[in-house]
Amino acid sequence: MEEEFLLIEPDSRTLSPRGLELVGEAAGDLGDRVGPELTRYQVELRTDPHTCLKEADDQIRATRTAAARAAARLGLRIASTGTPVLGRTDPVPITPGTRYARSAAHFRALDDEQTVCACHIHVGLPDPRDAVHVSNRLRPWLPALTALSANSPFEGGRDTGYASWRTMTWGRWPVSGPPPYFESPAHFDDLVGTLLEAEALIDRGGLYWDIRPSHHLPTIEVRVADAALTPHDTLLLAAVVRALTATALTALRAAEPAPRPAPELLRAACWRAARDGLAGHGIDPLTGRLEPQTALVERLLHTITPALRRHEDLDLVREQWQRLRTEGSGADRQRAAFRGRTDTHDVVDFVISATCAL
């Protein structure tokens, strides 16, 4: 798992450009499990590979706590939210490095919108060549995953009206959003090669599709989620994505055809999920019909129940899903924090507190 965090000045609650300092401060405890991001407002934390979610949960909490303590030694805080609640300064301060400099020169003001944070889940595959076929089978569930993980309603001091504003900012990138349906691994390789030749990418690391075969690990990487507000939210997402991947592999081995929603419907369903999150209606990308988003998530959970049972994760997912039904998504909880005094400073304080919540 890879989690991205914003650095916050506690007095003003605005972003701090001291990401490299925090990486250095936290490295003594975390080693290479902490690293920089494109902007100096951010850092990334990584877990080791895990097969046991209890062990993953322990490491997620320990890693977040170590980073928060390192930030506190620098007079800073870390916040797990998909977008900065309060404003940033444009152009954003870019982390030094050849690749980041190339990105800034090539994509220009788009890099100013990279002050967004995500949670990426990697799932190991027995045969990495299966990654594109797994991607095909995960595509229809992207809207449900977007709603389940939405945690970016505020940006620049205002409520955007979206549960996941981060999802909308990503849509401006040339290679982003739901991936295409791939006919074969060769189709994937040919398309990526064409995108590189067309200079829509600077390298394979710039494939910002919501699902992609990892370019450096034998995994499928699910990148659709906002940074998770709490460790509980990260764990739920990891359990669901792992079970989805296992379900896809079972279907692949049985030679079941992959669902193939129209790209236009899938994109519209992802937009609706980003706008309304769990609180409203969503679009079923296979039928085009509006249904309560919670019903679409319930359908997802029903589909992966056999895999959850095999992984011994079913009770955990049921418990955490019930918690979300009661408390709301990260976006819902951020808005609840705002309603108390209608002050975005309260939202920032709430996110900081929730980032390392027990």
Rank of each mutant, 00 (worst) to 15 (best):
P10A: 04
A67Q: 03
V224N: 01
D29Y: 03
G282M: 02
L244D: 03
E4F: 03
Y181L: 15
L196M: 14
D233Y: 05
Y181V: 11
P285N: 04
A56E: 12
T81S: 13
D11E: 13
A238Q: 14
D276Y: 09
D58H: 11
F182T: 00
S135F: 04
G97I: 00
A104G: 04
Q322E: 14
A246F: 09
E327C: 07
H106W: 08
A131K: 02
V175R: 05
G328V: 00
G82L: 02
L296S: 04
P84Y: 06
C270P: 00
A163M: 08
E155G: 05
G82V: 07
G171H: 14
V43W: 01
R172L: 15
R46E: 15
S80H: 13
A62N: 09
E264Q: 10
R139V: 01
D233H: 14
L286H: 10
D276L: 05
A274M: 03
P257N: 15
T146I: 09
D332G: 12
S353W: 10
P93F: 05
T51C: 08
I78P: 14
W271M: 10
R108K: 06
F107N: 03
L110W: 11
R242F: 03
I60G: 00
L195A: 10
A228C: 05
C356P: 00
A248M: 09
D58V: 14
D112P: 04
A104L: 12
D48C: 09
L148C: 06
A67Y: 07
G177R: 01
T63G: 09
E37A: 10
R166H: 09
A246N: 05
D190I: 05
G193L: 06
S184R: 10
A72N: 07
T294C: 14
R242D: 01
A70E: 09
I211A: 10
Q42W: 03
Y100P: 07
P285T: 13
T287Q: 03
T95H: 03
S149K: 02
Y208E: 07
D203K: 07
G280L: 04
T98Y: 13
R299H: 15
L7V: 09
S176R: 01
G288S: 00
A147V: 10
E2C: 05
L207D: 15
I202Y: 12
L15P: 05
R204F: 07
R267C: 11
T342G: 09
P179H: 06
S214C: 11
R69S: 09
L53A: 15
Y100C: 15
Q320I: 06
P174T: 11
R13Q: 08
T303Y: 02
A118V: 12
A295L: 11
P140R: 04
A248N: 12
N151Y: 03
L316G: 04
L148V: 12
E197W: 11
R325F: 03
Y41G: 05
E183V: 13
P153M: 02
Q334V: 14
W271R: 09
G31M: 02
P218M: 08
K54Y: 15
N136Q: 06
T303H: 11
A227Q: 07
S353A: 14
D90M: 06
F188W: 11
S214I: 08
T287V: 05
A258G: 10
R299V: 08
H281F: 09
R18D: 13
D112L: 01
S152I: 00
R310L: 08
L20E: 15
R341I: 07
